[in-house]
Design a binder for these strands. Structure first.
Lengths: 134, 134
DNA sequence: TTTCATACTTGTAATTATTACAAATAGATG
DNA sequence: CATCTATTTGTAATAATTACAAGTATGAAA
């Protein structure tokens, strides 16, 4: 895997302190944080960072396909450092969002009923392993 | 298909003028309107209706499973009078949301990786038939 | 290295979507 | 008709996001 610096260069993104921090934070977790979660975590080490920068950076990263955005029912927007297509599971009780790598999706066809498919998003909702046990 | 009145009674919902109007409007279309679209259309025939009532009614209908809510990437919440499970296609150019009845979904399993699946939402994004032709 | 132009960040204000809430209204029941 | 309760309405509050202008940092050129 290429370094962050390299991936930024490839896409013509200037590697500012803020952008690097945001991406490093995101890549270190798999819980699909929201803007607020990212801000709250980073503002401790970087007290001057602003929420607008988080928004700007994430918009740029999504545009350049270095980050994926998820809009799951009722949860607002969440961000995912993994851009390879995969599905997500939302636990309606604890709210956590889990990656599901192995779900093969039938709708990966290029064309459906005459419409050109560019992207497939599959969200499963239910009770996660832990919450289900009670 | 049962009448609206009957379906309301079954669920213990009082059939107020507003609720009936909102549901009738929704059932007459298949373009998955937003709260604003519904409000703008109804306020002409019912000048005193309030947006809060639209929100309240839709929340109730979703709760009682007479309406489905869709949260597609970037489009805010849209509402669908069809509650049988089916998929949706969003055209990234013209913004329309199309029903896809025939997409069979592989993930209709009851359980995935230990998590209990209660609901499956599949969104396809791309260019619709019309927009694609250009 | 200084200078300059440009890109990036920040804080604030504006916008949009949604919910909370209390007062007014309508509808059902006795 | 009188009363009780559910519903609706308007307004205010909240939350998420975007717009924008001013300040700051960065890189290139001199």
């Amino acid at each position: 895997m290429k370094s962050l610096q390299e991936r930024f260069e490839d896409k013509g993104i200037r590697p500012s302190q803020q952008r690097l921090r945001i991406m490093k934070y995101l890549e270190g977790r798999h819980d699909h944080p929201s803007v607020d979660m990212i801000y709250d975590a980073l503002v401790r080490e970087m007290p001057t960072i602003s929420k607008t920068t988080i928004y700007n950076t994430l918009r740029l990263m999504v545009e350049k396909a270095l980050v994926a955005d998820l809009t799951i029912s009722g949860q607002g927007v969440r961000y995912d450092p993994v851009t390879e297509p995969h599905s997500h599971f939302l636990c309606r009780k604890c709210g956590q969002v889990i990656d599901l790598e192995d779900i093969e999706c039938p709708c990966l066809k290029k064309e459906v009923q005459g419409n050109k498919v560019e992207e497939v998003r599959v969200y499963l909702i239910g009770l996660c392993k832990k919450c289900h046990r009670r």
